[in-house]
Amino acid sequence: METKTIKTENLTKVYNGNKAVDGLNLEIAEDDVFGFLGPNGAGKSTTILMLVGMIEPTEGKCIINDIEVARNPLKVKEIIGYLPEDVGFYGDMTAEQNLDYFARFYAMDASERKKRIEELLELVQLASVSQKVGGYSRGMTQRLGLAKALLNDPEVLFLDEPTANLDPEGVFQYRELIKQLSDEGKTIFVSSHILSEVSKVCNTIGIISKGTLIARGTLEELKSELGRVGAENLRIIVETIEPIPEITHRDIVNAEYSETKRKAIIEAKSDLRDYISSKLFEKGVKIKEMRMEEPTLEDVFLSVYRR
């Protein structure tokens, strides 16, 4: 039987009468890298805050490694790492001092702390930076946040918009780090509104919209599932040598022609490629290229979000 590291049961959070999270049921297996995807305001951060024991659910519960978060938040915090969105530190202290302060809350002696902090600062490339954190760029603070999240060598890692302030080099290093941590057997929960980012590092994805989980699965599963549900129209791109005559069909929703009429983008409810090619053949129009554009995952998500 597969072990479930992270589990939520009917998780609900109500703010001023509005449900930020509405009856969320999630199960994330051990070692999984789970991408929690959704637009801004969908309830991603609220879910994470409940999972890490920062806020209490209005209803339902969160369980991490068989520990109920609301009942034993401290025990949970000992085994998790959390990188909040817009992470912050004490500006009048160095990175080392900040990490040492936070490390004192865990069961680590002075030598352990020193060793761990040195390793982590090396890992996030801040070892040579001696200035106080108040003078850091957002990217540097984000990297320090990642080091802070890994301070206690957590079994479960929660990352909220982890690449939000990183430069391309930082994003690349972050992806490498996630792979490394995943190989070490850690369960990673990545919350983001950037699909490309999630799709690059996560094995499974859950999509949240208006506080409710609307889809869950691997990337391929989601693409096919949401493709059926979300994408209503197909786009057929036709390029010809002669001008394209007007094509009519009940499934055609929209057709756009270029000025020379040698290129057309036809939006249709079904795959009309056979019908279009026969019509063009009948009119003696030679086809240069004809292809159907499948909706990208991004298009699918957008259509799902907007519904």
């Binding site: 915090k77 909040p84 992470v87 865990y106 946040g145």
Partner: peptide, 10 residues
């Protein structure tokens, strides 16, 4: 936002 970092500790 250092409070969030602090509260994420045990």
């Amino acid at each position: 936002r250092s409070l969030k970092s602090l509260l994420s500790c045990p």
